[in-house]
Design a protein around this nucleic acid. Structure first.
Lengths: 341, 341
DNA sequence: TTGAAAGCGCTACCAA
DNA sequence: TTGGTAGCGCTTTCAA
C-alpha cells in the first residue's frame, strides 16, 4: 500500500504538505506543488479511506436503503439507483447498499459504525416504522417518498396527486365518458405505500371535477391472474353508453403491459376500442405493444433532487434552508393507446 | 459517538478487554463478559468502521461493479444485486456500489483507497479492458461472466452453451423441423458480451446433432421495431414443410414478451401455431402472455456461488483451492408456448 | 511557505 | 484472566 508518507519522502517534503496539496487548504509554492503532484502521480497514490474517515469524521459514503425483499415494488428501481450513484460520484462520494429487509437495524448500523455521512431512504410507507429511527440518527437522512409524519426529515417524491389528475384530465379532454382506475395488487395496497392513496385522490378528484364517472378496481392478487380479474371487472363495470368511450388508467407499473395484452386478447384493442393510460417510465411506455399513453415517474428527476438536497445538508457552509417536501411534476405523453377524438 | 473507551469505562475494564469480548479472540471470565456485554447493550455500541478498517486492514466491504451505463443489459440485474447483497450481509459485510461507466478507474479506486476487501465484477465482455487491471489489484476479484482471458481471476457464470442446447433439444424432442434463433440487438452483439457466442454455439451444435435446420437472426436495432424485423425474418425464413413445426428460440431476455406479442399480432399464436422458448428468469416467464417455455438464467445461484467463492478467497485459514471457472446449469421449464406433440 | 506532532478509534502484542 | 500501549494513515493545529 502506498501512503502519504511515501509520497512525502519521494517529493522531499513533509507528510502534512502532501495532505495540504491534496486538500488545497493552504497555499503551496508552485515548485513544491509540482514535486508533490508528480510524486502522487508516480506512485499512483490515493488516500486510505479508513484513515481519512477516522480523522476527518467524513466517510464520503452515502448509505442507500433499497426496497429489496418480499413483495417490494422493484420495477423501475434501477433508474433510481443509477442516478443516485451517478450524483454521488459527481461529488466523489460512494454508495453503500443496504436492503430494506434489515429494517431499522440497517439504519442504526450505518450511523453507529460511521459507515456513511448521510442516508437515502427509499420506498417509504405511509406509517413507516423506520422514520422515527431515521429521524434520530446522527447523520442527515432524506426520504424518497412521503410518509404521514416525516418527523422533520426532508422528502422528495413524484407529485402523485398531479399524476392522477393528469391521466384523468387527458381522458376527459379526449371525450371519454367512463373511467376505470386499475390499482395495485392487494398486498401492495395493504402495505400502504402512500402514493397509492395520493394517485387515487388526484384521479378521482379530477374525474369529479369533470363530471366523468370513475371507479377504482384493485388486483385481487399479484401476477397476470390478478390483472385479468381486475380488467374483467373494469370492462364489466358498466359499458359506456352506446357509442361512448371507456378510459382505463393503470396505476400499477407492472400491470401496464399485462392490461394491454389482456384487453387485446378480449378483442378490445387499446387505442381502437378503449383508451389506456399507464403510470410508468417513458422507456417502458415506448416498449409496450402498442406504445401506451403514459404519465412518467421521473425517477431521474426525483433522484437528482434528492441528492441535491442531501449534499446541501452535508455542505458545512451552505446550510441553506431545505424544503421539507419537494414534489416533482410528472409529464403525460400521448402515444397509441388514446382514442382519437 | 460511542467508543469502546466509553464501554470500557462503564464496564470497569480496559479497552482491550472490550475488543477481545467482541472478537472472541481470547478467553474472558464469565463475569467480565457479562459486564462488558451489558455495557455494550446499554450504550448501543458498534465499532467505528474506519478505525477498525485502519487497524485490521479489513473493511468488511465488498465492491460490486454493476453494468449501469449506456446500452447495458440491465434487465434481470436486480436479482443479482439482491442476492449478492444478501450473501454479503450474512457474513456481516456490506456492498459498495460502483458503476461500469467508471471503467478501470473504479477498480483502482476501490483498491488504492482500501475501500473494500474484495470485488465482484459483472457484465464481463469477451475482451474486457478491465480484466488486466482487475488482475493486478491487491484484493481478490471474482468475475460474473467469462472473458476470453481471465488472467487467473475466478469466473462464475451460467452455462450458456448448455442453455442453448437445452432450448434446441426441447424443440427437437417435441417434433419441430425448423428452428430460428432470435438474438440480441446489434449494439449488444457488437459489445461482444461473450454469452452471445456461447449460447449460439450450444444451440447450433445441438440442432446439427439432431439434424434440424437452424438459422440465427439478430435484431437490427434496439426496441420493438428491432424485434418486429427479426420476427418477420424468422417467420419468412422458410416455412416448415406443410404441416411442419417451427420453433423460435429467443436469446434476448428483453425481447421475449415482444416476440410473443408480435407473433400473436401476426396471427401466429405461440403454443398453437409455433413454439417459442425464451432465455429469461422464471419470474418473467410466468408473467408473459402466454406463459413462455423458458430456460432460466439462475441469477441467484450464480450470485450465491460467486459470493461463496469470494468469501473462500477472503478466508485467511481456508485458502482451499478455488475452481477457475464455475458454470451453473440452467433449467428448462415447459409452459404454454410449446406445441404439444 | 513549510514541518512536527497529536490524535481520530480500534486491534493485537507484550507484560503481568 | 486482564491491562497497558503502540501504531494503522490521515488531517490539522501549533511552531518556525
Amino acid at each position: 500500500m502506498v501512503t502519504s508518507r511515501d509520497v512525502a519522502r519521494l517529493a522531499g517534503v513533509s507528510q502534512s504538505t502532501v495532505s495540504y496539496v491534496m486538500s488545497g487548504r493552504r497555499s503551496i509554492s508552485p515548485e513544491t506543488r509540482r514535486r508533490v503532484e508528480s510524486a502522487i502521480a508516480e506512485l499512483a497514490f490515493q488516500p486510505n479511506a479508513g484513515a481519512r474517515a477516522l480523522k476527518s469524521q467524513r466517510t464520503r459514503v452515502i448509505g442507500l436503503v433499497v426496497p429489496f425483499g418480499p413483495d417490494a415494488d422493484t420495477s423501475g428501481l434501477l433508474p433510481f439507483i443509477e442516478t443516485i450513484a451517478h450524483c454521488a460520484r459527481e461529488q466523489d462520494h460512494d454508495i453503500l447498499l443496504v436492503t430494506r429487509d434489515e429494517g431499522s437495524a440497517g439504519l442504526t448500523r450505518l450511523a453507529a459504525r460511521s459507515l456513511c455521512d448521510a442516508v437515502v431512504l427509499m420506498d417509504i410507507e405511509t406509517h413507516d416504522a423506520r422514520i422515527p429511527v431515521a429521524a434520530g440518527l446522527a447523520v442527515p437522512v432524506i426520504l424518497i417518498g412521503l410518509p404521514a409524519e416525516p418527523l422533520g426529515l426532508p422528502c422528495v417524491d413524484l407529485d402523485f396527486e398531479r399524476a392522477g389528475r393528469l391521466a384523468v384530465e387527458h381522458l376527459a379532454a379526449t371525450g371519454h365518458d367512463r373511467i376505470v382506475l386499475i390499482g395495485h395488487p392487494r398486498p401492495t395496497v395493504a402495505r400502504e405505500v402512500n402514493f397509492v392513496g395520493r394517485f387515487r385522490r388526484g384521479a378521482t378528484a379530477a374525474a369529479a371535477a369533470h363530471g366523468v364517472p370513475c371507479t377504482v378496481v384493485d388486483q385481487p392478487e399479484r401476477g397476470p391472474r390478478g390483472v385479468s380479474a381486475a380488467l374483467d371487472e373494469a370492462l364489466g363495470c358498466g359499458e359506456p353508453s352506446p357509442g361512448g368511450r371507456l378510459g382505463v388508467v393503470v396505476h400499477d407499473t407492472e400491470a401496464v403491459q399485462p392490461v394491454l395484452t389482456a384487453a387485446a386478447g378480449r378483442g378490445r384493442l387499446p387505442g381502437r376500442d378503449l383508451s389506456v393510460v399507464g403510470l410508468c417510465p417513458d422507456v417502458l411506455a415506448e416498449g409496450t405493444t402498442p406504445p401506451v399513453t403514459n404519465v412518467s415517474l421521473e425517477p431521474r428527476d426525483v433522484s437528482r433532487r434528492a441528492m441535491r438536497t442531501l449534499f446541501r445538508l452535508l455542505d458545512p457552509g451552505g446550510a441553506g434552508p431545505v424544503a421539507p417536501v419537494e414534489l416533482i411534476s410528472p409529464r403525460l405523453t400521448r402515444r397509441r393507446t388514446t382514442l382519437t377524438g
